[in-house]
């Protein structure tokens, strides 16, 4: 049986840096064949972020989830977790960036999430989106 997933009311517990007063968000897939999702505040409906999987940006993206965080988010298996990064969408779109140093860790089973900072990682807060695509263009 597929476990139920909870993306309509995710508890970030005020962990989104700069938006500590916001707690609950909904994650919505933007219709169509592309990697973008919207993270919408439940408390301030006009507040939303465009997010993307960091693995779409860098296939070798990796980090270590601490045991404390896994416990706090009640993560029991890697299948419980989705990871997203907040995009800063710019015009032209080629100049858009993705926050790779502060991913959003979401337990989709329990609807619990945190934005964390990867201390000592090589990733950047404003990493270019689709660098490989730009080379090919």
């Amino acid at each position: 049986m597929q476990p139920e997933i909870n993306l309509s009311n995710i508890d970030f517990n005020g962990s989104i840096f700069g938006f500590e007063s916001l707690r609950y968000f909904a994650l919505e897939k933007v219709e169509g064949n592309h990697p973008f999702f919207l993270l919408k505040s439940k408390e301030r409906e006009e507040f939303e972020f465009v997010v993307i999987s960091p693995f779409e940006v860098d296939q070798k993206y990796e980090f270590q989830l601490t045991e404390d965080l896994a416990r706090e988010l009640r993560i029991e298996s890697p299948h419980d977790v989705l990871v997203f990064s907040i995009m800063n969408v710019r015009k032209p779109f080629e100049e858009s960036t993705v926050n790779m140093i502060a991913p959003l860790i979401i337990n989709v089973i329990h609807g619990l999430a945190r934005q964390i900072i990867l201390n000592g990682s090589p990733y950047q807060a404003q990493s270019r989106l689709f660098p490989i695509r730009n080379e090919g263009a």
């Binding site: 700069g18 990697p35 995009m87 800063n88 779109f93 502060a102 900072i117 689709f130 695509r133």
Partner: peptide
């Protein structure tokens, strides 16, 4: 920097249709 970047990324008022078609085109 993370705070600033989060702030810059809020409510981009992005035309998602534009973003989607650009993404498909460049892919």
């Amino acid at each position: 920097e993370v705070r600033l970047t989060n702030n810059m990324s809020l409510n981009a008022h992005v035309d998602l249709e534009d973003l989607k078609s650009w993404s498909l085109r460049t892919k």
